[in-house]
Design a protein around this nucleic acid. Structure first.
Length: 155
DNA sequence: GCCAACGTTGGC
DNA sequence: GCCAACGTTGGC
């Protein structure tokens, strides 16, 4: 009972956690913690193991898609919401009623060269990408067609 | 570092 | 339920 693999774009500031940080992590995987936006959280909750993730470096020089990852664990409570010493602490969350969730992702590959935001804007087939319309949304779905163009262009 | 866009909070 | 104030994201 498996569904078609879905494609997502997930943003991370490379100065905080880059695709190379993910590559160097144990089992080359890590929990995607710190998401504090309901729409982004809901997208994470709909992810399945095996879904593909376009790893986007935001607030970078330049920003753009750095490579690929995959979902290896479906959504579970983000532990940082319970930790009062953590910057992502949320006093309204309890273990019984968690508010924020994360998935685990594993490194798949880094592109030979980053596909910059400028590159992406230059591809007519991508003109309707959520990335441009909802530019502040840190997790968003990507269509199969968009994903195929991106992988082909990235080489 | 600036600031536009936009999500969240809280007073009323 | 409105909306002003405030906080965050993220490109530049």
């Amino acid at each position: 009972m498996s569904r078609e693999k879905r494609h997502w774009l997930m943003k991370s500031e490379p100065s905080v956690f880059s695709i190379e940080d993910l590559r160097r992590s144990p089992q080359q995987s890590a929990g995607w913690d710190g998401v504090r936006n309901y729409q982004a959280r809901n997208f994470m909750k709909s992810m399945a193991v095996g879904d593909e993730v376009l790893y986007y470096h935001s607030n970078a020089d330049p920003s753009g898609i750095a490579g690929l990852a995959e979902v290896v664990k479906t959504a579970y409570p983000d532990p940082t919401q319970f930790d009062s010493k953590n910057g992502h602490y949320d006093a309204k969350a309890t273990k019984g009623k968690p508010i924020w969730f994360q998935v685990d992702v594993r490194f798949v590959k880094a592109f030979p060269e980053l596909l910059s935001l400028e590159d992406l804007r230059g591809l007519p087939a991508l003109k309707n990408m959520a990335l441009f319309k909802y530019s502040r949304l840190s997790i968003q779905p990507v269509t199969k067609a968009e994903r195929d163009i991106i992988l082909k262009t990235a080489g």
